[in-house]
């Protein structure tokens, strides 16, 4: 295409609605939040801006001294480190089963596994709150058949986070499963045939053909799942409100509470930017690894 003014002009016209919206309603608030994170803007300042002070980095310093913040960070880490591998593993297994030539009724299974993905998280959290209920809940009832004593899933700090992880995996694995199915279908059959000719068994086929061929898909899935899991919020908001003992308090939930419950907006903005930093680091590491593999 030639470089002509009218070409630019049309491009800018096409871009302008979306870009205007993004700059005004996304980038501008991000900047405002950044400035806010260096102030003690809070409920006192809402009515009278002279009651806000620039405080430099003290919000950030306070946060690093606040055990609750480390707790939230640790919880989020737990959720991510257990939830993401579990979710990817289950997605991959489900995808391989769906891709198996032995299996019929594939549309049925695919649909079933995908249903939780499209349903409303709030509604799902409401349902699971009752399923996890210690005395009358369905889960404990089922577990009683295998001799497991009732667990107070959402009331016990040891189990509450695990309960949220199980629900989150149940809710989300179908999505990655679909992507894995697509990835699996893109692997040429000839590779498997060649492997079989070399006498590879099922496990070797998986190790030497499936896994390497899925590397790129897995990388994509890992990044998106990681970022999504880092921001988990609605599950604890609806089901536990961060409790018991703050064992399910996530970074975003803490940010939300500080910001929208107590209106300590400066403090809340600082949490948001730390979260941003973490996500950024994860993304960069992941990209580095991926690049390394490609070379």
């Amino acid at each position: 295409m030639k470089f002509k003014w009218q070409n630019y002009n049309a491009a800018y016209l096409f871009l302008s609605p979306a870009m205007t919206a993004i700059f005004i309603f996304f980038f501008l608030p991000v900047l405002a939040a950044l400035v806010m994170s260096f102030t003690d803007f809070d409920i006192y300042s809402l009515g009278d801006i002279s009651r806000a002070r620039f405080v430099g980095f003290s919000n950030y310093i306070d946060l690093f001294k606040n055990p609750l913040f480390w707790k939230a960070l640790g919880n989020t880490g737990y959720f991510v480190l257990v939830g993401v591998p579990l979710s990817i593993l289950i997605s991959m297994l489900a995808a391989m089963a769906l891709n198996s030539k032995m299996l019929r009724f594939k549309p049925f299974f695919r649909l079933t596994f995908f249903l939780p993905v499209v349903t409303t998280l709030v509604a799902v959290a409401v349902i699971w709150r009752y399923i996890y209920q210690a005395r009358f809940g369905l889960l404990n009832y089922l577990l009683s058949f295998v001799g497991i004593n009732p667990v107070d899933w959402l009331g016990n700090p040891r189990w509450a986070m695990l309960a949220l992880i199980i629900m989150a995996v149940w809710k989300g694995f179908g999505y990655n499963m679909i992507i894995f199915v697509a990835g699996l279908q893109n692997i040429p059959e000839t590779l498997y045939e060649a492997a079989r000719l070399d006498g590879a068994n099922g496990w070797q086929e998986f190790r030497n053909v499936t896994l390497p061929m899925l590397a790129q898909t897995t990388g994509f899935i890992t990044i998106t799942t990681l970022i999504g899991y880092c921001q988990f919020f609605a599950e604890p908001y609806v089901m536990t409100d961060g409790g018991p003992l703050n064992s399910t308090l996530s970074i975003v939930l803490m940010m939300y509470k500080e910001g929208f419950k107590f209106w300590r907006m400066g403090y809340s903005a600082a949490i948001a930017f730390i979260l941003f930093g973490i996500i950024l680091i994860i993304t960069l590491i992941q990209l580095r690894i991926q690049k390394h593999h490609e070379i």
């Binding site: 993004i22 309603f25 996304f26 980038f27 501008l28 608030p29 991000v30 405002a32 939040a33 806010m36 970022i227 880092c230 921001q231 919020f233 975003v252 940010m255 939300y256 910001g259 929208f260 907006m265 809340s268 903005a269 948001a272 930017f273 979260l275 941003f276 996500i279 950024l280 993304t283």
Partner: peptide, 20 residues
């Protein structure tokens, strides 16, 4: 710029956005 902005969690914007 847009791609890197995808890393920014939406929650960051919520307070200023509300006031705006």
């Amino acid at each position: 710029l847009l791609l890197s902005a995808m890393v920014i969690p939406a929650q960051v914007t919520m307070l200023p956005l509300f006031l705006m």
